[in-house]
Amino acid sequence: MLSALRNLGQFSLDLLEVLGRAGSLWWQAIWRRPRLANAPLLIRQIYQLGVLSVVITVLSGFSIGAVLALQGYNQLVKYGSESALGLGVALVLVMEIGPVVAGLLFAGRAGSAVTAEIGLMKATEQLSSMEMMGVDPLQRIVAPRLWAGFIAMPILALMFSVVGIWGSSLVGVDWLGVYEGAFWSAMQDGVDFKSHVLKGIVKSVVFGLVVTWIAVFQGYDTAPTSEGIAAATTRTVVYSSVAVLILDFFLTLVMFNF
């Protein structure tokens, strides 16, 4: 009993310590704003994190949009409301599935790569040698990745939603025969830029920050061994996926006035 309590206390202290270290890493790095001289680093990271995630994001967006249209049609047609198909799919994509699924894909595809890369740099003393050259790895390695995540993630989420809506229109309008005018006009009437699209973007920005933060921290904090890097990479995917889902709940709670 006592030892269980002590373990719990120890665990909480450890957790707080990790959070503290992660927080200070983020804080220190985020203020090292990419200077103009570092723009190439940022561009390279947007390429690594963003551009290389486009294919998987677009493919997933398309198939999820198509599936939503199929399932949604099946239900709506029972009530003769299939003209609301476009509206339903668009709302769900823009507010929830776009940011969340794109965030999960981003965690798996880009987050794990960032952790592995930084972890390996640490294990092979590249970070140490950079420090010894008087170059701050927070500025050269960490900051560009954080900012790239911040920029790339909303773009990926927007692409996901757009491709998803396109996929649903292909299935709904071109295949299942929902009247095209109704499909789009119901969507345009029901989806509001400020209260739906913009809030979805806010979500994706938060997810981008959190996923890259976790990824960078796990890489930076890893034990410099191959097992250490493997474990850190797994942790990045697990933690950031869970973080995306939990944060989504709270962001929805706050932004959509419950």
Binding site: I46, Y47, G50, V51, V54, A90, V94, I151, A152, P154, I155, L158, M159, S161, V162, I165, W184, S185, M187, Q188, D189, V191, D192, F193, H196, V197, I201
Partner: peptide, 18 residues
């Protein structure tokens, strides 16, 4: 990539949310 992001935003703004 950035341009694609802007285009996506424009589509969501004008085509999807009217």
């Amino acid at each position: 990539f950035m341009l694609a992001g802007i285009v996506s935003l424009a589509i969501l703004a004008f085509r999807v949310s009217g």
